[in-house]
Design a binder for these strands. Structure first.
Length: 240
DNA sequence: CCAGACGTTGTT
DNA sequence: GTCTGG
DNA sequence: CCAGACGTTGTT
DNA sequence: GTCTGG
């Protein structure tokens, strides 16, 4: 699902676009290939000060009651369909929601052999935000606090459905304020729907993206594998 | 009662 | 096959 | 998400 | 922490 994405918009620019004052900044580097377990840039709302902030959280949510932080390896995504029931996510869904800025994400078409990676982004190239949840977890051994997050996934739109049965939930700006509140008006689950396909584009990219060690702008370049050069159905994928 | 799970993906 | 690391 | 490891003993 | 299974 959503296990890899790109964020090359600076923190300064994101702060401007999403109305975030920046007394302090996480100073996370931009990346063309962000992977689970890494620290990722998030937007949260301080319920006391009513101010939005940019924060670095580790990707892979660890519930506060977990005994072992390794559960974070399996909680990089939360299913929208069950997010209000799943023990690992329901409390975070009720009280600890966040936004995760990106300007593209990657999905693999696995019905082909070998699997083929694709990039998905907005047609206008602007950044957007995934719907996310966050948690604090205290390491019982060291007493250290770990701050973690997860990206919510749901049904794909018609564009992404061509290659993959799931996609991350992207929230339009009109819903940011409600999502970031500490309270739930009871309708938040209704926001977790596929982002309109007509505003997005998708293209095949090089399998160099497969390893997060490769982290450079060339990952964004269109690429045509032998499989897509020879298979009619794959070529149709690339048509608008 | 205690023990054990608590998650997602995709399955050509 | 399953888990860890990035 | 994918890639890569997956083990033990005993310690210059 | 809370729920399910035995």
């Amino acid at each position: 699902m959503c296990g890899r994405y790109r964020r090359t918009t600076s923190e300064e620019e994101l702060a401007r676009v999403y109305h975030i004052p920046i007394p302090k900044q996480p100073d996370l580097p931009i990346s063309y290939n962000i992977a689970p377990s890494q620290k990722v840039l998030t937007i949260r709302l301080n319920p006391q000060s009513r101010v939005r902030s940019l924060d670095a959280l580790q990707w892979g949510l660890i519930p506060y009651w977990a005994k072992d932080p390794k559960v974070g390896y399996r909680t990089i995504n939360a299913r929208a369909e069950t997010i209000d029931k799943a023990p690992s996510f329901r409390e975070a869904f009720a009280k600890r929601r966040c936004l995760i800025p990106a300007d593209g994400f990657y999905e693999w078409r696995k019905t082909a052999k070998p699997k083929l990676p694709f990039a998905i982004a907005m047609k206008d190239g602007r950044p957007f935000t995934f719907a996310g949840l966050w948690e604090n977890w205290k390491d019982p051994e060291s007493g250290e606090w770990l701050r973690t997050c997860t990206i919510i996934t749901g049904e794909p739109n018609e564009l992404v459905a061509q290659i993959h049965p799931r996609m991350p939930v992207i929230l339009p700006e009109e819903h940011h304020a409600a999502w970031l509140e500490e309270t739930d008006d009871g309708n938040l689950k209704e926001l977790l729907i596929p982002y309109p396909a007509d505003q997005m584009r998708m293209w095949e990219i090089s399998p160099r993206v497969n390893t997060p060690k490769n982290d450079d702008p060339s990952l964004w370049e269109p690429f045509h594998s032998e499989a897509t050069q020879t298979k009619t159905d794959a070529l149709e994928l690339l048509r608008e």
